[in-house]
């Protein structure tokens, strides 16, 4: 791919930092596709990163997460803050394609220039989805957005990882009994800074809040502070309380910002290493790779053996 001339890139970075929407959109594309220019852009904006507050929302499909984020954005907008959203959707493991549909609804904020929404598919990213997401968050941050919201479907490990990129993580669930809320127990409750029982106008909402509180009570003292809120996203009921709770959590944990910084840097390094490994594999060991493919597919070697051979080759070069 042809790299644009350096002056073009510099001018582009200026527009990005100046808050031009197209520049941000295109910069995200560069990061997502692993374009060479992305590294230059990311390096250049590092000094401008760290002003946005990053809020993660995670929760199973059907809990009304998108509608809740929509309502949360409404509150932030009323408070005069601008919001950028990175909505992460799963992609098909077979085709790599994705339907990016379970996203914040555009209807309401469709005409609002104070809101920027970008869908990210979870397809094979260099260095993992969390690295890409961290970079997207950095771009949004550097482009001057006050709040950055990360939306993920809370079902797997990578989602937990992404949620950890946030200053404040909100875990959303819907009213249910027993098994219904078991789903959020495994791993995901631990990352919650704020817990929300959405659809609080439905049956069992009160009981679900109680159950979550007792589940939290069983955990470490640090969890004691995790507020459990009930909201009705469709009508916006108590979403302002949620916004205030998020702000309060942010103030309670000033160190979180530093933690995010560290996590982000870590993700960046991992990303860079993966990139370099990829390049070296392709450029220096392409023939070896082809050869190994044949040997694995005819059963002579297994995949682990092949990895060992390649790592050894990389060590030597």
């Amino acid at each position: 791919m042809n790299r644009p001339p350096a002056t073009r890139i510099e001018e582009f970075i200026g527009r990005l930092r100046g808050g031009e929407r197209f520049a941000l959109a295109r910069a995200i594309t560069l990061v997502e596709t692993g374009a060479a220019t992305a590294v230059t852009v990311l390096n250049a904006i590092q000094s401008g990163v760290g002003n946005a507050r990053v809020i993660g929302f995670t929760g199973a499909p059907g809990v009304g997460k998108s509608t809740l984020i929509n309502a949360y954005i409404r509150v932030l907008r009323q408070r005069g803050q601008t919001v950028a959203v990175a909505a992460v959707d799963p992609s098909s493991p077979i085709s790599g394609g994705a339907i990016l549909g379970d996203r914040v609804r555009m209807g309401e904020h469709g005409g609002d220039d104070g809101v920027f929404i970008r869908s990210i598919s979870s397809r094979g990213h260099l260095g993992g989805l969390s690295a890409t997401t961290a970079q997207v968050v950095d771009l949004m941050d550097a482009a001057g957005w006050d709040r950055v919201v990360i939306e993920t479907v809370g079902t797997g490990q990578s989602e937990v990882e992404i949620a950890r990129l946030a200053d404040v993580s909100v875990v959303v669930c819907a009213p249910g009994f027993g098994d219904d809320i078991q789903a959020i127990k495994a791993g995901i409750l631990e990352i919650a800074d704020v817990l929300v029982v959405n659809k609080a106008d439905q049956a069992f909402a009160e009981q679900t809040c109680q159950q979550l509180k007792s589940m939290l009570g069983l955990r470490t003292a640090a969890c004691d502070a995790v507020p459990v809120l009930a909201t009705v996203a469709t009508t916006g009921q108590d979403v302002d309380r949620l916004a205030s709770a998020i702000d309060a959590r942010y103030r309670e944990h000033p160190s979180d910002h530093h933690t995010r910084e560290t996590r982000r840097t870590r993700a960046l390094i991992v990303h860079a290493v993966c990139r370099e490994m990829h390049r070296r594999l392709a450029d220096e060991h392409g023939d070896k790779l082809d050869d190994l493919c044949v040997r694995v597919s005819c059963g002579e070697l297994n995949v682990d053996d092949a990895v060992g051979v390649l790592l050894a080759a990389l060590d030597r070069s």
């Binding site: 509608t67 339907i99 549909g101 379970d102 609804r105 209807g107 009705v232 469709t234 009508t235 916006g236």
Partner: peptide, 12 residues
């Protein structure tokens, strides 16, 4: 306003 808008649920 009072009862909320029924957002379509996209299942794709």
């Amino acid at each position: 306003r009072e009862l909320g808008f029924g957002e379509p649920l996209i299942v794709a």
